[in-house]
Design a protein around this nucleic acid. Structure first.
Length: 276
DNA sequence: AATGTAGTCAACCGCAGGCAT
DNA sequence: CATGCCTGCGGTTGACTACAT
């Protein structure tokens, strides 16, 4: 970052500086936001003397300087959410970013491009998949243990998230009206705004099925309570019509199929869904 | 050790929508 | 109602870094 920028750096166009920001400029911008708050980006240059366009200032602030930004690598959990939400919304990065506090649309966009946009999975994807599988297995063994104890102690069957909602036969029939159809608060908001279509419900439901257990846990944590329903999120694998980009099919399959995991069927379903 | 390639990050551009005038 | 400005979004590009050969 800091090193003397070559290339596009240091040039001025119409009086505006372009290229990498210096720490000096950052300081000015941060100070300005502290005093005046966000917004009115076009006035930043006038008030601070920064030779940066409002657009550039906003971008710098939003993507780099904001104090609530979460630095560091995207976690597997976040990755799961990204995958799911992308399945639901496509390239609406800012919408996706709203479900990931501390992450920017730019960050997510970059992440998606580098990890998922390729025809074949990258090494990182393989690593992520390995992590995913490992965590899944750990979670399952823990859940098995916990489930055993719970079954012994809790016979009255609170039932809400015991994972039986779609486990017996036709998950398709159970679709839209259950809680999984209300994925995240943001989705609910969209739905309220009339932007949420039945088709998206279906996609989301598939996504939820697809991504279990990890992201089910994450998303439903918010969504289930919003929807007030039960968290039926397990019981199937990816369907062919899943997703918004056909080109990603190979990646999805590679990353999320669980061929490499030896898990008893009932244990898998139970492990996932008894999370809730 | 040198070189090539892939991955990652930061920043730019153009466009569209919202809002004030 | 029309127009212009501002803001936000998504796509793209360029530079740097890490890893592989």
């Amino acid at each position: 970052m800091e090193g003397a920028p070559l290339g596009w750096g240091r040039q001025e166009v119409d009086g505006w500086r372009k290229g990498p920001w210096t720490s000096q400029e950052d300081k000015l911008l941060v100070e300005h936001v502290r005093q005046h708050g966000e917004g009115r980006w076009n006035s930043v240059s006038k008030l601070t003397g920064l030779k940066r366009s409002g657009k550039s200032c906003r971008l710098r602030w939003v993507n780099y300087l904001r104090p609530d930004l979460k630095r560091g690598k995207i976690t597997p959990q976040e990755e799961s959410i990204i995958v799911q939400l992308h399945a639901l919304w496509g390239n609406r990065w800012s919408t996706i970013a709203r479900s990931l506090p501390g992450r920017t649309d730019n960050e997510i966009k970059n992440y998606w491009r580098t990890h998922f946009k390729k025809g074949k999975p990258s090494k990182n994807i393989e690593r992520a998949r390995a992590r995913f599988l490992k965590q899944r297995q750990e979670m399952q063994s823990q859940q098995q243990l916990a489930g055993q104890v719970a079954r012994d102690e809790n016979q009255d069957g609170g039932g809400a998230r015991t994972g039986t909602a779609v486990d017996d036969d036709d998950r398709g029939s159970a679709v839209v009206d259950d809680a999984c159809a209300a994925p995240a608060p943001a989705v609910a908001a969209e739905a309220a705004a009339g932007h949420h279509h039945h088709h998206e419900d279906l996609i989301m439901h598939d996504a939820m099925d697809f991504m279990c257990p990890m992201s089910c846990a994450l998303l439903l944590h918010g969504a289930v309570h919003q929807g007030g329903g039960t968290g039926s999120c397990c019981g199937s694998t990816a369907s062919d019509e899943y997703g918004s980009g056909e080109e990603d099919a190979a990646t999805w399959g590679s990353l999320w199929n669980l061929d490499g995991v030896v898990v008893p069927d009932d244990a898998a379903a139970g492990a996932c869904c008894t999370l809730w």
